[in-house]
């Protein structure tokens, strides 16, 4: 999809509605957030507390990611926003509109064109580049919170690298179910030091975090925490030597673009249990179809003489 033109004229853009600053936040706040980001990059995986602001969208709806995005966005940036891997989900649309309106930056649905990608719950299928930044929206930044509700205690556990308790949780999974049953927000160890919540991405995406060329930033608005993974940093999903980490696998390819080894959404087609699996990354799927790839459903539709996705 082609780049959308800005609402204001990019370079001269200063405010919207004559009231708000470029990208909504005032410059003092942005500086404060950028200081927190620098600290986060310097200590990979460490949760930096920051004076999070109220945003004009509800807590839990991406306020952390939006504050990070607002603080790093410049007039030359091209923004992509996805939710569940797709650009057209309502919340992604809403956040994209927000920045298009308040910052006037061009927005895009193409992963390759974007310089900043704000995401909720997915990492794009295409490998990100060094000149890109991915910003994750994080609901619960503390990976240990489900095991230990007290902030005073979890901060000590991080400070002293006391992570045995998480291993106990994985041990319990295996002894009860024969495997580790965590499927999303699967905890990782960053740079061989801090345990970190990757946000609720499927564990399928965990390997993409390891040694990623792009800078990864994480913003938790309600919990007021920022953390980061610098480019090319070691990210290890927790496991046992004899029960190694395993990402999900899908048996069938995407029904529309025939992609294998990608994360798929299950789409219910009728109330008789007929369903199909399609790419969760809508941009990736569209590109593949444009290149002429055809999944089983798309082929079936083509043979019958009508389009698969319109």
């Amino acid at each position: 999809m082609s780049t959308l033109q800005p609402a204001g004229s990019g370079a001269q853009f200063h405010s919207i509605d004559g009231v708000y600053n470029f990208a909504y936040l005032d410059e003092q706040t942005k500086r404060m957030i950028r200081r927190a980001l620098l600290k986060a990059v310097a200590i990979p995986g460490y949760q930096v507390p920051f004076g999070g602001r109220e945003m004009p969208v509800a807590y839990g709806w991406g306020t952390g990611g939006m504050q990070v995005t607002a603080s790093i966005l410049g007039v030359d940036d091209v923004l992509k926003v996805i939710d569940q891997g797709a650009d057209d989900t309502t919340n992604a649309v809403s956040i994209r509109r927000f920045f298009n309106r308040t910052a006037g930056v061009p927005v895009t649905e193409a992963t390759t064109e974007a310089t900043v990608i704000q995401t909720r719950h997915r990492i794009p299928e295409k490998t990100l580049r060094e000149d890109q930044v991915i910003v994750y929206q994080v609901p619960m930044p503390e990976p240990l919170r489900k095991l230990e509700p007290r902030e005073t205690e979890t901060r000590k556990m991080h400070a002293f690298a006391e992570y045995g308790l998480m291993q106990v949780k994985l041990y319990e999974d295996i002894s009860r179910h024969g495997e580790i049953t965590t499927t999303y927000d699967y905890p990782v160890e960053v740079n061989a030091r801090y345990m970190m919540a990757p946000s609720p991405i499927p564990k399928f995406d965990n390997p993409k975090m390891h040694a990623m060329p792009a800078l990864q930033l994480f913003g938790a608005g309600r919990e007021k925490r920022i953390y980061a993974i610098p480019p090319y940093t070691k990210v290890r999903s927790l496991d046992f030597n004899d029960y190694p980490f395993e990402p999900q696998q899908f048996e069938d390819p995407c029904a529309l673009c025939d992609a294998k080894g990608v994360f798929l959404d299950e789409v219910i087609l009728d109330d008789k249990g007929d369903h199909m699996f399609v790419c969760s990354d809508s941009d990736h799927c569209r590109d593949r179809r444009a290149e002429g790839h055809m999944g089983p459903r798309a082929r079936e539709a083509a043979e019958k003489g009508y389009g698969a996705d319109e």
């Binding site: 006391e162 045995g164 106990v168 041990y171 295996i174 002894s175 009860r176 030597n241 004899d242």
Partner: peptide
């Protein structure tokens, strides 16, 4: 709320044991 095995294994995991079979 942790099994007897998990309770006994916790101290081993706390000092870095990462082999499920050995811990068990």
């Amino acid at each position: 709320s942790v099994s007897a095995g998990g309770n006994v294994g916790e101290r081993l995991m706390a000092v870095g044991a990462r082999h499920y079979g050995d811990i068990r």
